Simulated assay, not measured.
Amino acid sequence: MKAIGFKQSLPILDANSFIAFETEKPTPSGFDLLVKIAAISVNPVDFKIRESAAKDTVLETPKIIGWDAVGTVEAVGDTTSKFKVGDQVYYAGDLTRSGSNAEYQLIDERIVGHKPKNLSIAEAAAIPLTGLTAYESLFDRIKVNPETDKGKTVLILAGAGGVGSMAIQLAKKIGNLTVIATASREDSVQWCKDLGADFVINHHNLKEELEKIGHSQVNYILDYVDLEGYWDTMAEIIKPQGHIVSITESSKPLNLNILKAKSVTFSWELMYTRSMFGTEDIERQHFILNTIADLLDAGTIKTTLTTTLEGFTVDNLKKAHQMQESGKTIGKTVIKY
């Protein structure tokens, strides 16, 4: 089968930052499905791992990355029970295994969902990683209750990004929250409004911007951009007994003491935790993906696809990585095979 990978962590414009090669088509066993991939999407995690996985070495075998994928089940392992050959599926993959930048992939059925029926292949490919991350942030980490938490405020940092775009919709439509998103460019501000944000503020002056809209403090903060840069400000603007969730990293230890007086909860969110550690609740990702598919099919939420590149090629993969590295993309970029 054809795959695209890399042997060294090189700048994306380097001729060998990605290379196409042939490798053996895998055979499923246990909980695995063999999926023939039809489309993938590219996320910030893709270029971050490309930049770090082979920084000081040259790999003997090219590393295949990529996580979001949509495809058709071609074969199943001997302990599978959720899918059959011919089913269309979508998923966000597993950091510990070979990725989706290939024609075929093995994936544990417990972290796979049925593809949304009313979405095209490209529209569906935009969803899994960001959908899971946003859903887990709100309903697994904060544990938002749509009835008792109705009207509470959530500040979403980087509202126009892939995860932020899903979080706006889920927080508003499912969580019943008052949604405040950050964006600075005219097109990204409008994007956040179109997705349902009640307020869109400039991320450069958070405190002042929040005061302008009458919400000087918020119940929840979802950091999808820069934990270290916003840490002190978040401690100021979070309400007593509030909750902060972050998917980003800090280069230095965080001062948790500044949250103590307010009894604020801080949680990390990593969508890969369940698959990396084979947690007892690993199957919850199957449930979440099916839940999100139902919401998409019902029109309650919508795809965040903005750019489709036609063809599984080195050039298209490089182009998608360049777009992610720019930090200016809105929504999601998909490569259709």
Rank of each mutant, 00 (worst) to 15 (best):
M1K: 05
A3H: 05
N16I: 01
S17G: 06
E22S: 15
E22Q: 14
L34Y: 01
I37W: 00
I37G: 01
I40C: 13
N43A: 11
K48G: 08
I49E: 06
K55N: 11
L59T: 09
T61W: 02
I64A: 07
G66P: 04
T72Y: 07
T72A: 12
T72F: 07
G77R: 05
K84P: 07
G86S: 09
Q88C: 02
S100G: 15
A102L: 11
E103D: 15
I107K: 00
G113D: 03
K115I: 00
N118K: 15
E123W: 05
A125I: 02
F139Y: 11
D140V: 08
R141V: 09
K143P: 00
V144G: 00
E147K: 13
D149M: 06
L155W: 06
I156T: 07
A167Q: 01
G175M: 07
T182C: 08
S184T: 15
Q190A: 15
K193C: 04
A197F: 10
F199Q: 11
H203Q: 14
H204F: 12
L206G: 01
K212T: 15
Y220R: 09
I221P: 02
I221D: 01
D223K: 08
Y224Q: 01
H243R: 08
S246D: 14
T248R: 00
E249N: 14
S250T: 09
S251P: 03
K260N: 11
F266W: 11
T273M: 10
G278H: 00
D281G: 07
I282P: 00
I288F: 03
T291H: 05
I292Y: 02
A298C: 10
K302C: 12
G311V: 10
F312D: 04
K318A: 13
K319S: 15
A320S: 15
G327Q: 13
T329E: 15
T329P: 03
T333S: 09
K336E: 09
K336H: 09
